[in-house]
Simulated scan of single mutants.
Amino acid sequence: MARRRPAAVVMIALVVILEALGMLAAAGFYLFGLVTSTPASLGGAVFMLVLLLLLATWLLVVGHFLWRGYRWTRSAILTWQLFMLVIAVPTLSGGYLLYGYCLLIPPLAALVLLFRREVVAYTSRTAQPPAAL
C-alpha cells in the first residue's frame, strides 16, 4: 500500500532542492571567478569551491531522501535551515534587504512545515503497519 505524500513534504523538499541548486549556481560563479582572476590563496579558494559542491550535493541527497520519507532528513534539514537563518539575519541588518529576505523566507517556511504532524508521521513511517518477517 503506497503512502500519500503530504503537501508539506513536497514544499520542504522543494525548498531544500532549490537551496541546493542555488548553491550549485554559487559554486559555478565562484569557479568562474577562480578561473578568470588570481585568488589570494589558491588552496583556500579550491577548498571553498569543494565545500560549496559538497554542501550542494548533500542538500540534493537530503531532499531526495525526504521525498522518500526517511526520518534522518528532518534533523539534517533543521540544522541547515538554522544555518541559513544565521546567515540571513546579518545580511538583513547589513542593509541587503532583497538578499536577506531571499535567505530568510524559505528557511522559515521549511522550519514551520518541518514540525507539522503529517510531516512527522510521513517521515516516521507511522502511517504503515509494521512489516511482517
Rank of each mutant, 00 (worst) to 15 (best):
L92Q: 07
T79I: 13
L104C: 05
C102R: 12
W58M: 09
L60H: 01
L103P: 03
Y70K: 09
F115D: 00
L60D: 02
L108H: 06
L78Y: 02
T73I: 10
R74T: 09
S93V: 15
M84R: 10
L66P: 02
S41A: 12
L51T: 11
L104Y: 06
F83M: 15
S41I: 14
T73V: 08
R71I: 09
L52Y: 14
V46Q: 12
A45P: 05
M84A: 12
G100W: 01
A109C: 07
A109Q: 06
R116V: 00
L104T: 06
M48N: 13
P106N: 08
I87R: 08
A76K: 10
G63K: 14
W72C: 08
R116I: 02
M84D: 09
G44S: 15
Y70G: 01
L111V: 12
L52Q: 14
R68T: 04
T79V: 14
L98W: 15
V62L: 09
G63A: 12
I105Y: 12
V50M: 03
F65N: 03
L53V: 15
Y101H: 04
L82V: 15
A88P: 05
T79H: 05
H64C: 03
V50A: 02
S75H: 05
L60A: 03
A56M: 13
L51E: 12
V86I: 12
Y96W: 04
R74C: 11
Y70C: 01
R74H: 07
G95T: 05
S41T: 10
R74W: 09
Y101S: 04
L114R: 07
V50Y: 01
P90F: 08
L51R: 11
W80N: 07
S75M: 04
L104A: 10
T73A: 05
V89G: 01
A56L: 15
L59N: 00
A110E: 07
I87K: 13
G43Y: 15
L78N: 01
A76S: 11
L55N: 02
L53R: 08
